[in-house]
Nucleic acid binder design. Structure first.
Lengths: 195, 195
DNA sequence: CAACGATACGGAACAACGTTCCGTTTAGCT
DNA sequence: AGCTAAACGGAACGTTGTTCCGTATCGTTG
């Protein structure tokens, strides 16, 4: 819970083998995630890193911590894109739409990440919480701006929208006929106050 | 695959203990599903029915077959509601909206059913196929009618819409702050050609 | 109605998973 | 060099879904 900020701090360990192993594990995990998805067995990652299971679990007490560590940079980038888009886009609603596109692309790119984001599976509360803590405020900002401009309906909270978009992305990478990006676009369109 | 029609036929077995056990299993499964969700361990269902694992697996070779059998009636009702709504609703788009509401209610009521509908998990292809075979044609009919009336955009296939709505329902039963029904409504709104 | 063969039964056993635990090794300070 | 705290590996545990087979039982047939 206190690992929320910067990588420089928590990678610090007295022993350099520990630091090296953590790094190796991150690389191995990233590699395995792209080939087998985030559901890949923990053992695969450990063996790919040439490391024991105990080592993996000491560095990343739960599978969620590993996923968070692997994708932290990209989540950060997505979060930072929010305010930027708000300035560059013609309208707040356009900014929102573009940001959602970013978010969708991120989720769809990682095999099964979206599926794992629904925290009802035990052990993933951490992942869920991290995503929400970092991205919901950004989404709220975009939504508020669009609301203030009178562009969208007022009764959809950021958290609901994000969970909805996240859910829409589930299984998107497996099936080319299911276009999660377009569907998310439709959802954002539906936010507009018409009628 | 040939279990698709009527229950009267396939429940027929020479031995009445077999028939009785199948019935008991269905009741036990339904009961366990409402308390523990469709993810409930198979052993729970078998023991609740006072029956061995082998018995359960002989009657329902895969967990999906069990789920299908338990919910067949309700799926059927949902499917039949489609054409009816098309006649009773003022516009095709209204019919579509109401039908989606029905579909969402069905999914949200069953704990975790929506989550399990994404067939990427092995063993659930059957469930996925059953739902799709039965409901996609209905949804297609509603969509076509709305398209013919010029009410909605044309580039969202029924399958995509249904998978999207199904995904939106994932985890809805667990968290009162996540309103899948409203979100599905927004999605259907987004289908309307505006701008 | 008795015997027999097909059918169904129960649950032990297997495989795959995440996670825990602990005896062993080793890095880095004194 | 020696010592201790830290990190290591991987066997072992608990929980899944699923398979398998020796045993019990039903329904028919002589």
């Amino acid at each position: 819970m206190n690992e929320r900020d910067g990588d420089a701090g928590d990678t610090a360990s007295r022993r350099k083998d520990a630091r090296r192993n953590k790094e190796t594990l991150l690389e191995a995990a990233a590699a395995v995630f792209v080939t087998s998805g985030v559901d890949a067995p923990v053992r695969d990652i450990a063996s790919r890193a040439g490391v024991g299971l105990g080592t993996l679990y000491r560095h990343f007490p739960t599978r969620a911590d590993l996923i968070i560590a692997v994708y932290r940079h990209q989540v950060e980038a997505c979060a930072e894109a929010g305010p930027a888009l708000l300035e560059s886009a013609p309208t707040p609603h356009d900014a929102l739409r573009q940001w959602i596109d970013l978010f969708v692309d991120f989720l769809v790119t990682k095999h099964g990440l979206a599926a794992v984001l629904r925290s009802d599976q035990s052990g993933f509360e951490g992942l869920h919480a991290y995503f929400l803590d970092r991205l919901v405020p950004v989404c709220t900002q975009l939504l508020d701006a669009a609301r203030a401009a009178g562009e969208i309906r007022e009764d959809i909270p950021a958290l609901t929208l994000m969970r909805g978009v996240g859910n829409l992305c589930i299984g998107a990478e497996a099936d080319p006929d299911y276009d999660a990006r377009r569907l998310a676009g439709v959802l954002v369109d539906g936010l507009c106050r018409t009628r």
